[in-house]
Design a binder for these strands. Structure first.
Length: 890
RNA sequence: GGGCGAUUGGCUCAGUUGGUUAGAGCGCCACAUUCACAUUGUGGAGGUCAAAGGUUCGAAUCCUUUAUCGCCCACCA
C-alpha cells in the first residue's frame, strides 16, 4: 500500500486538482435544452482589486452553490469577470505615472488610455489568479471584462435606447463633486459620515439701516456665492426685513432677503444664506426665486477668480481666511459646535462638494416600477428577507442617477456635438446620440463634430452584467438559455449600487428580473468590529491564510461562522477550526483506505445485507445528515449545512462508528469474512457520501481522497449529490445506539473519576430495567466492552452489587463498576444524592406542569404525552438512584 | 430624525415557524502518546439567554418599553 502522510498537506493537492479541473473543462457549461440551467454571474471584482476576506466569503458562497447544484445535476454556469472600475483604476494608474513624474494630461487622452490597458494586461488578472487559489469553479472560458467590445456595445445600446425613450437627459444640477478625483459622483458614491464640525453665525448688514441679519452656516467659504438670504414667510422676527437689501460681507455685493417656506424657523437663527451653486436646497430656492447661481469654486476645490483675495486658496484654507476676516470686521457673532453629516468620496474619501455642473442623468422612477413589483410579488427574494425592506425603501424614494464622470477611463458617452449648431442655439440642438461617430451633422450637414468628453459611471456597465455578459443585445443561445440567472450572492454594501440597478435594467431590457434569489452575506470585520480594509491595515490576507492553513480550511472556517447574513468577525485563530477538520477528514479517510484492502466488495448490497446495530445506526445518521445538509443549502443556511456535515463526520462517524468497527477491521479473526466485507462497504459508502456532501465546502481535500477511493467518473465534482434514502432512517437503531453510547459514557466517566488507566480493563455489570433495554444492551455488549475498555460485562435484570463498586444510572439501567480498594462510600453517597437532587428537580417541574389543568387541556396532545413519557423515564431513573442510595446506607 | 442588526457559559458565536434538563468551537481543569489523527482521544467545570413589563398552559424565541454597541438611510443651513 502507498504511504499516506499522517497530516493533510494542502500545498500538495490544491494546485494539482485545480489544474485538473480546469484542463478537464469541469467548470464549463454549454446551453443544453435537455437540462435545467443553474446560473450565477459573479459580482465582478475591480480589475485593480486584490483578494480580501470579503471576496473570499462572497466567492466561497457562490462556489458552494455552483458545485452543489452541479452535483445535483443542474447545468451549472458561474460566469466570472472583472470590472473596469473607472475612478479606482484611473487613480491607480495615475499614481503609478506620478512616480515617473508624469501627469495624465502630459500624455493626452489616447495615450493615457493605452497605458491603462497596458496596466490591466500586466496586473489586471491578479484577482483572477487569487480566485483560482480559492478553488472557484468559474467558467473561465466565459470571463468577461466590463470594457470588452461586446459589453461596451451593450452600454452604448442601453444609453441610446434610454435616451430615445426620454429616460436620459442632460442638465445643470447640483451634484456631488470630488475635488481630488475631479469628477461628479452619484448620490450613492457620496458616503455620509458624521463629523464634529462648527456652525458659524455671521452677521449680514442691512443696507441703509443700522441693523443686520445673522445667518448660520457650516460652510462659510460658500458665502461668496450667496445670492440672497432666506427666511420663513411666517417668521415674525424677519417680517419687516423681507425684500430688504443686504450687503454681503467680504464681497460687498448687494443681495435680497427673500421669504421661502423651506426655511426652518427653529434651526440656527431662522435665516439661511442662499448659495444656489453650492447647495442642493439653495439651488431649488434659487430656481423658485429666479436667482442666478454664482460659482465660487473650481473643480479642484480652490476658490475661483471671482472671489477676490481668496481666489486660488483651497476651500478649507479659504474657510479659515474668511473667518479671520469676519472676526476682524466683528461680523462673526459666534461659533457653535455642530455635529453634522458630510459626504465623502467613496473612492478616495475626500470631502465632496455639492457643486453645480452640467451632467447626464437617468430618470429612475419609471425604471423602478417593475423592480418594486418584483420584490412585492416574490418574483425576486432576498435572503435574509429583511433586505427586501431596505431595497424597497430605496426603490420607492429613488432619485435620478448622475451617470457622467469627468475622467478618461471608462465608456465614453455616445453623444456627439455639432459645433456649428451648438453655437447657433442653446438647448438640444446639435446633440447627436449615436453608436458611431457621425460623419456630418444631420441638421446642418456640418462636419465639425466632437464627442462628449465624459465617460459613464462604472455602474452603468455593471448594471447590465447579467445579460451583457451573455451577448446582449444579440439574441444569443447563451442569453436565452442562461438568463434569467438563478442566484446572486453579494454583500449588503452594493444593494443600491448594483443589485437594485441590475433588477431595473433586467426588466427594462430583458423583460424579466435578472435573478430569483439574492443572498446577502455579512460584512467581514476584524475583532474590533471595523470593516476589514487594506487602508485600515486590519485585513487578514486570504492568500496568507491559504498558504498557512490551506484553502479548504479558509473556506470551511469562513462559512461555518457566517450565520444568516450576520457580519463575520474574524481573527486568525478561527481558521484552525477548518484546518483541524480538514486534517480529521484526511486521517479518517486514511484509516478507511488502509482497511478496505484496495476497494470495497462491489457485490455487497447494503439494502439486503445483514447489518449490525452500528451499521444500521450510521446509515440512518448519514441519511439524516444528507437530508439536513441539502435542506439547509436550499434555504441558504450555509453555516448550518457546514456544521451538520462537520458534526456527522467528526462526532458520529469518526468518534463512534469508526471506533466501533475497529475490531472487525483489524483483528485476524475477521479476515476474509462476509462481516468484514460489509463493514468495508459501509465505511466506503459513508466516506464517499460524506466527501460528496463536503465537497462544495472543501473542494480540494475531498477530491484528493475521493480519487483514492474506488470511484466512477473523473472527478468528485462531476459525481452526483447523495440522495437521502429515507428507508434507511432507523429510529430503533438510533435509540439502541443512544443507550449504548450513554452507557459507555457513564462507564468512561467512572473510569476517569477513579483514574483508571486506559490500558487497564475493568469489569462491569448492567441491570436492564426493561426487556427492551436488555435486548439493546445485549446487542451492543461488544461495543460497550470495546469502547468502555471492559474485560467482562454481565447483563442481568437485577443488580448484584459487589461491595466496593461505583454505580450509576442511565435511563432504566443501572451500571455497576467494581472498584476494589478505590471506592469511598461517603463520596459515592454524595454523588448519588447530587444526582437524585438534580433529577428530582426535573421530575418536580414536569409534575407541576402536568398538574396544571390549563396545560393538559390546552397544549397539543403530543406535547402532553411527551411530558408524560419524559416523567415516566425520569421516575424510573430516580427510583433506581434511590434504591442504590438506600443500599449504600445499609 | 427614520430604519435595521446585535446583546446567550472566560472568548467567539449557533439556536428554522414559541414545547430538550439551552448547544458548538476556542480557552480552562484532569487523564492518555505501540492503536487513522496531539491539527488527537477520554472525562470534567462553566450560562436564572442585557433589564423591566406583557401575551401564552408554556418564552432565549412573540409584543411593549429601556439600556448598551454596531450598521444603513435622510437636503435642515
Amino acid at each position: 500500500m502507498r504511504e499516506i502522510p499522517s497530516a493533510y498537506d494542502p500545498k500538495a493537492t490544491e494546485e494539482k486538482w485545480y489544474k485538473f479541473w480546469e484542463s478537464g473543462k469541469y467548470f464549463h457549461a454549454q446551453p443544453d435544452p435537455g437540462r435545467k440551467p443553474y446560473t450565477i454571474v459573479i459580482p465582478p471584482p475591480n480589475v485593480t482589486g486584490i483578494l480580501h476576506m470579503g471576496h473570499a466569503l462572497n466567492n466561497t458562497v457562490q462556489d458552494i452553490l455552483i458545485r452543489w447544484r452541479k452535483m445535483q445535476g443542474w447545468n451549472a454556469e458561474w460566469l466570472p469577470g472583472t470590472d473596469h472600475a473607472g475612478i479606482a483604476t484611473q487613480n491607480v494608474v495615475e499614481k503609478k505615472l506620478a512616480k515617473e513624474g508624469i501627469k495624465r494630461q502630459d500624455l493626452g487622452r489616447d495615450e493615457f488610455i493605452r497605458r491603462v490597458w497596458k496596466w490591466r494586461e500586466e496586473y489586471g488578472s491578479t484577482i483572477i489568479s487569487q480566485m483560482k487559489r480559492l478553488g472557484c469553479s468559474c467558467d473561465w472560458d466565459r470571463t468577461r471584462f466590463t470594457m470588452d467590445e461586446g459589453l461596451s456595445n451593450a452600454v452604448n445600446e442601453v444609453f441610446i435606447r434610454l435616451y430615445e425613450k426620454g429616460l436620459i437627459y442632460r442638465g445643470n444640477y447640483i451634484i456631488n463633486w470630488c475635488p481630488r478625483c475631479q469628477t461628479a459622483l452619484s448620490d450613492e458614491e457620496a458616503q455620509h459620515k458624521d463629523l464634529n464640525g462648527s456652525l458659524y453665525y455671521i452677521k449680514y448688514p442691512v443696507k441703509g439701516r443700522n441693523r443686520h441679519i445673522t445667518v448660520a452656516t457650516t460652510r462659510p467659504e460658500t458665502m461668496l456665492g450667496d445670492v440672497a438670504v432666506a427666511v420663513n414667510p411666517s417668521d415674525p422676527r424677519f417680517k419687516d426685513l423681507v425684500g430688504e437689501t443686504l450687503i454681503l460681507p467680504l464681497a460687498g455685493r448687494e443681495i435680497k432677503v427673500i421669504a421661502d417656506s423651506f426655511v426652518d424657523m427653529e434651526f440656527g437663527t431662522g435665516a439661511v444664506k442662499v448659495t444656489p451653486a453650492h447647495d442642493p436646497n439653495d439651488f431649488d430656492m434659487g430656481k423658485r426665486h429666479n436667482l442666478e447661481p454664482i460659482v465660487v469654486m473650481q473643480p479642484d476645490g480652490t476658490m475661483s477668480r471671482n472671489t477676490g483675495d481668496f481666489a486660488g486658496m483651497d476651500r478649507f484654507e479659504a474657510r479659515e481666511a474668511i473667518l479671520e476676516d469676519l472676526k476682524e470686521m466683528k461680523l462673526l457673532e459666534k461659533v457653535d459646535a455642530h455635529a453634522h453629516s458630510v459626504g465623502h468620496c467613496y473612492r478616495c474619501h475626500t470631502v465632496v462638494e455639492p457643486y453645480l455642473s452640467e451632467q447626464w442623468f437617468v430618470r429612475m422612477k419609471p425604471l423602478a416600477k417593475a423592480g418594486i413589483e418584483a420584490a412585492k410579488s416574490g418574483r425576486i427574494k432576498f435572503h435574509p428577507d429583511r433586505w427586501t425592506k431596505v431595497y424597497l425603501d430605496w426603490m420607492e424614494n429613488i432619485r435620478d442617477w448622475c451617470i457622467s464622470r469627468q475622467i478618461w477611463w471608462g465608456h465614453r458617452i455616445p453623444v456627439y456635438y455639432c459645433i456649428k449648431c451648438r453655437k447657433a442655439s442653446e438647448g438640444k440642438k446639435g446633440i447627436i446620440v449615436s453608436r458611431v461617430k457621425p460623419a456630418k451633422c444631420p441638421d446642418c450637414g456640418g462636419t465639425d463634430i466632437v464627442q462628449d468628453e465624459d465617460v459613464l459611471d462604472t455602474w452603468f456597465s455593471s448594471w447590465l452584467w447579467p445579460f451583457s455578459t451573455f451577448g446582449w443585445p444579440e439574441k444569443t443561445k447563451d442569453l436565452s438559455y442562461f438568463y434569467p440567472t438563478s442566484t446572486l450572492a453579494t454583500a449588503q454594501e452594493i444593494i443600491f449600487f448594483w443589485v437594485a440597478r441590475m433588477i431595473m435594467s433586467g426588466y427594462e431590457f430583458m423583460g424579466d428580473a435578472p435573478f430569483k434569489d439574492i443572498y446577502i452575506h455579512g460584512t467581514v470585520r476584524d475583532e474590533t468590529g471595523a470593516k476589514m480594509s487594506k487602508s485600515l491595515g486590519n485585513s487578514i490576507d486570504p492568500v496568507e491564510i491559504i498558504d498557512e492553513y490551506g484553502t479548504d480550511a479558509l473556506r470551511f472556517s469562513l462559512i461555518s461562522i457566517t450565520a444568516g447574513g450576520q457580519d463575520v468577525f474574524l481573527s486568525k485563530e478561527k481558521f484552525e477550526l477548518g484546518r483541524n477538520f480538514a486534517n480529521k477528514i484526511w486521517n479518517a479517510s486514511r484509516f478507511v483506505l488502509m482497511n478496505i484492502e484496495g476497494g470495497a466488495d462491489q457485490d455487497i448490497d447494503l439494502a439486503s445485507a445483514d447489518l449490525s446495530l452500528a451499521d444500521k445506526w450510521i446509515l440512518s445518521r448519514l441519511n439524516r445528515a444528507v437530508d439536513s445538509v441539502t435542506g439547509s443549502l436550499e434555504e441558504f443556511r450555509f453555516n448550518e449545512a457546514a456544521n451538520t456535515a462537520y458534526e456527522f463526520f467528526w462526532h458520529e462517524f469518526c468518534d463512534w462508528y469508526v471506533e466501533l468497527v475497529k475490531p472487525e477491521m483489524t483483528k485476524d479473526e475477521f479476515k476474509g469474512t462476509q462481516r468484514k466485507k460489509i463493514v468495508q462497504a459501509i465505511l466506503t459508502h459513508c466516506i464517499d457520501n460524506a466527501l460528496k456532501v463536503l465537497h462544495p465546502f472543501m473542494p480540494f481535500v475531498t477530491e484528493e481522497i475521493w480519487q483514492n477511493l474506488p470511484h466512477e467518473g473523473g472527478s468528485i465534482m462531476a459525481s452526483s449529490w447523495p440522495k437521502c434514502d429515507k428507508g434507511l432512517f432507523d429510529d430503533g437503531a438510533e435509540q439502541e445506539m443512544s443507550l449504548a453510547i450513554g452507557i459507555i459514557s457513564v462507564i468512561r466517566n467512572i473510569r476517569a473519576e477513579f483514574n483508571i488507566q486506559p490500558q487497564k480493563l475493568c469489569k462491569a455489570s448492567i441491570a436492564a430495567g426493561s426487556g427492551k433495554s436488555r435486548d439493546a444492551i445485549t446487542k451492543s455488549a461488544e461495543y460497550i466492552k470495546g469502547l468502555a475498555r471492559l474485560e467482562s460485562l454481565d447483563i442481568s435484570d437485577k443488580l448484584v452489587r459487589p461491595k466496593a463498586s461505583s454505580v450509576a444510572v442511565f435511563g432504566d439501567c443501572e451500571i455497576c463498576v467494581p472498584l476494589e480498594g478505590l471506592v469511598d462510600l461517603e463520596s459515592e453517597k454524595r454523588k448519588m444524592m447530587l444526582k437524585i437532587g438534580e433529577l428530582s428537580k426535573y421530575t418536580g417541574s414536569i409534575e407541576a406542569k402536568l398538574r396544571n389543568k390549563n396545560f393538559t387541556d390546552r397544549a397539543p396532545r403530543e406535547v402532553v404525552d411527551n411530558e408524560k413519557s419524559k416523567l415516566a423515564e425520569a421516575n424510573i431513573s430516580l427510583g433506581k438512584l434511590k434504591e442504590n442510595l438506600k443500599r449504600l446506607e445499609t
